[in-house]
């Protein structure tokens, strides 16, 4: 196996990796937020993103709305979608063992996936917008404009969520509930309501991701399977519940995918991504940024 790659390929890979990493981080913010607040891993998060992508797709393809304007619809929709799912399924079993919650969200993901299959068929759907051909040339490196916007969106979203948690009353309530639900209740915080808010927020970030992804990505009933897996890896790498770590984790995985593809032959790139993950598990299982907790 020959490791043939040139400087041009490698610099392109690094640029693409950063773009991709931003995207992965954006997808994963919701998952890490939900975990951080209520210690639930939402295994349907990938399917939530699938729903957001379908919504964005239909708004753009059928409604002829500019993809970046669909944000004002997708974000609130996903917020209430998340709240609806939470109310109907998760909140009744919030006190049950973790395993039950995992199973429940896995069940929800199977339902969403196969409902989408029945409603929209298995067709891969994507749109061609006027942004698709918008590119930025930096020497030999080409950066896709739509991916750059997604990266910017990712940074802004991370900062936005962080700012919200740090400064607003609702944000403080969420953090208090996360740290110690009992104490928060004693302080007069309506913990179930803050959980609901956090879950809605975690879901709303996917609305943003859906709108920012649809100009250069596609949607299909099974799109959430692979994207969901990426989310899990990013969140574990970042240190579960750590917002900034999630961003760094996204970058690590994005770079691993593209640099791996540049350096290794065949589709071993994907293996490379998983190897990075396993190496991190061996040496920094608590995540890239977190302190060791034993």
């Amino acid at each position: 196996m020959n490791l043939n790659f040139s400087g041009a390929v490698l610099s392109q890979a690094v640029a693409s990796g950063i773009m991709l990493g931003g995207l992965f981080a954006l997808m994963s913010i919701g998952l890490t937020l939900i975990w951080g607040v209520m210690k639930i891993i939402n295994f349907a998060q990938g399917e939530f993103l699938m729903v957001a992508l379908y919504l964005a797709y239909f708004l753009v393809a059928r409604g002829h709305i500019d993809p970046y304007i669909t944000i004002i619809i997708t974000v609130p929709f996903m917020f209430f979608f998340g709240i609806g799912i939470f109310r109907a399924t998760i909140s009744p079993i919030l006190k049950d063992p973790v395993m039950n919650q995992i199973m429940l969200t896995l069940g929800v993901s199977l339902i969403l996936q196969n409902l989408a299959l029945m409603l929209f068929s298995a067709n891969v759907q994507s749109v061609n917008t006027r942004y698709s051909t918008w590119n930025i040339h930096l020497g030999s490196v080409v950066i896709s404009g739509t991916q750059l916007i997604a990266l910017v969106g990712s940074v802004l979203c991370t900062l936005g969520v962080w700012y919200f948690l740090k400064t607003t009353d609702s944000g403080r309530a969420i953090r208090a509930s996360a740290q110690n639900p009992t104490a928060a209740t004693l302080m007069g915080i309506d913990v179930p309501r803050t959980y609901l808010l956090a879950f809605g927020l975690g879901s709303a970030t996917l609305g943003l991701a859906g709108s920012l992804m649809i100009p250069f990505y596609y949607t299909s009933p099974t799109v959430g399977v692979f994207l969901g897996l990426i989310m899990f890896i990013v969140v574990v790498l970042g240190g579960m519940g750590n917002l900034l770590g999630c961003f760094v984790g996204g970058l690590v995985i994005g770079l691993a995918e593209t640099v791996g593809a540049a350096v290794f032959p065949g589709s071993l790139a994907r293996v490379f991504t998983f190897s990075i993950f396993i190496i991190f598990l061996l040496f920094r299982p608590q995540g890239v940024l977190s302190k060791r907790q034993t």
């Binding site: 069940g107 993901s109 199977l110 339902i111």
Partner: peptide, 21 residues
């Protein structure tokens, strides 16, 4: 109804967890 088998699994899982944990 393509996917009905997996949909059924999903429903069984959700209902089991909610009412028969």
């Amino acid at each position: 109804f393509p996917g009905s088998q997996l949909l059924l699994y999903g429903l069984v899982m959700v209902l089991t967890m909610m009412f028969m944990p």
